[in-house]
Design a protein around this nucleic acid. Structure first.
Lengths: 230, 230
DNA sequence: CGCTGTGAATGTATTCACAGCG
DNA sequence: CGCTGTGAATACATTCACAGCG
C-alpha cells in the first residue's frame, strides 16, 4: 500500500508494482526531519518553513519540499508547515506511528549495549526477545527479557510476534543466524556484523558497518598533516 | 596529497584544490573490496577478476574497475588483479596501512561495547584514551586504558596523540563534547549521537544513527502484511 | 582470447527557478 | 507578499560497450 524503497536491486526487477518509488535518501531525510520536528514541537514552535527545516537538518529548502511532495501537499503557501501536523504525517509515512517488536540476535557486548540503548524504546522499537547460541547465557534475563537458545529461534520469533531483528552476532555465524531468523518469519534485519547478508527479496536488510565508517574517516584524513596549531 | 572525499559541502566550496575528487560511495566500496580481498588471501587465492570481486561484494564488474581506475592501473589485462597486491594498495589508498589512535568520548554502555569491539583493533584503530564527564567513572580502567575527566579533554587528546574520536555521549552534550575534541586537535569524529554536529571544514564527521536505520526498515515494511505462511 | 581501463550513455538525485495559492 | 509545490536543468553515480594490452 505505502510506497516502496528504491534499491539498486529494484532496477533489475521485472514488475513495477507501486506508484512512485521513493529513494532511500529521501527516507533517511524524512527520519531526520521528523526528529527535528519533535524538537521544535517540544520548544513550542508551531509553524516551520522549508528553509528553516533545511537549515536545521543540513539540507536545502527545495530538497525538503520535494521530499515531502512525494507524499502529499502538507504545507500552506506563504506560511509553511504546521509542526505537529507534519511530524505526525511523517511518522505515519515512515510507519513509526505504531510499535515494532524487535528480536535481538546476539547477547554479547554490542547486543547488551543496544538492549539498553534508550533511543530504541523511545522511538517505538521494543525488544521483545533475545537469542544467543551460548547456552551459558540462555535462561538469564535482561531487565525482564529472557535470553533464549538460538535453537528455539523459530519458536521464539513466532510467539513474540517480532517482525524485525537486530543482528549482532560474530561475522562467522551472521549468515546462518540471518537464515534462521528469516525462516522464522522476520522481514527486516538491521545487521551489525561486517558481512554482506544474502536474503530473499521480500526481506529488508540494513547494514551498520562501523569499520567502514572509520575507514572513510581514515581516507579523508590521510595525507593531511595534523593541525599546525601545536 | 591523497584525493579528497567529495561531500555535498564541497560543491559549495570556493577553492578546488585536489586532482580528482573521489565520491564517498567509491570509498565505501573500497573498504568492502579490501575486506573481501583479505578473505581471499586467507583462502590462498592469488588472482581475482573484477567479475569475481563484484560478485563477492554485491556490485558489478565495471564498478569495480572504475573505482580502482581512479587510483591507478592495478590489474593485468586478460588475468585480473593480484589479490595481496591489490589489498595492500587499497589499504594504502584508504590510509589504513598504519595505525590510527582513537579517543573514545563517552564511557556508557555503547562506549563500553565499542571499546571491546574486536574489529577496531583488528583494523588498526587503537583506542588510546577514554573520556567521560561522570566523575564517578574517572580513574577506573578498561583493559588498562584509563578513563579521564572530560575537563581534561585537551590535555589527554594532545598527550595521547589521537587524531580520531568516537563520540558516544548522550545527544544533549554531543555538540559540546565535539567542540572540545575539535579544539583539542581531533580531525575526525565518528558520531553515534543522534544529532547533526556542526564542525569546521577541516574536521571530518561521520554519523552512525541507529534509529534512522530502523526507521528505514519500518518504512520498507510498513503496509506489507506479515508473511502468509502462518 | 580474456580481461582491464575508460569514454560515452544512461539512470538517479539534487538544485534551480518560477507559477500559483493563501 | 511569502512560501509551497513542481517541471526543467543540472550534477552526479552507475552501467554499457569496446578498444587495446598481456
Amino acid at each position: 500500500m505505502g510506497p516502496r524503497v528504491r534499491t539498486k536491486r529494484d532496477a533489475q526487477d521485472a514488475g513495477g508494482d507501486e506508484s512512485t518509488r521513493i529513494s532511500e535518501y529521501t527516507v533517511r531525510r524524512l527520519s531526520v526531519y521528523c526528529h527535528n520536528l519533535e524538537e521544535l514541537e517540544a520548544d513550542g514552535v508551531d509553524m516551520v518553513s522549508s528553509a528553516r527545516l533545511a537549515d536545521l537538518t543540513g539540507t536545502n529548502p527545495a530538497q525538503v519540499r520535494k521530499d515531502l511532495s512525494y507524499f502529499g501537499n502538507f504545507g500552506k503557501r506563504g506560511t509553511g508547515y504546521r509542526v505537529t501536523d507534519l511530524k505526525n504525517r511523517i511518522r505515519k509515512i515512515l510507519g513509526i506511528d505504531r510499535r515494532w517488536k524487535v528480536v535481538l540476535a546476539g547477547a554479547g557486548n554490542l547486543g547488551s549495549a543496544l538492549f539498553s540503548y534508550k533511543e530504541f524504546e523511545k522511538n517505538g522499537f521494543q525488544i521483545v526477545a533475545i537469542l544467543d547460541s551460548d547456552e551459558k547465557k540462555v535462561g538469564s534475563r535482561w531487565d525482564g527479557v529472557q535470553i533464549h537458545s538460538m535453537a528455539r529461534c523459530s519458536d521464539i520469533v513466532r510467539k513474540s510476534g517480532a517482525e524485525v531483528a537486530v543482528l549482532v552476532t560474530p561475522a562467522a555465524v551472521a549468515q546462518d543466524v540471518a537464515d534462521q531468523l528469516i525462516a522464522a518469519g522476520i522481514r527486516g534485519v538491521l545487521n551489525f556484523a561486517p558481512v554482506k547478508l544474502d536474503a530473499p527479496d521480500h526481506v529488508q536488510i540494513r547494514n551498520v558497518n562501523i569499520t567502514i565508517e572509520l575507514e572513510g574517516l581514515s581516507f579523508a584524513l590521510r595525507g593531511r598533516e595534523p593541525g599546525i596549531d601545536e
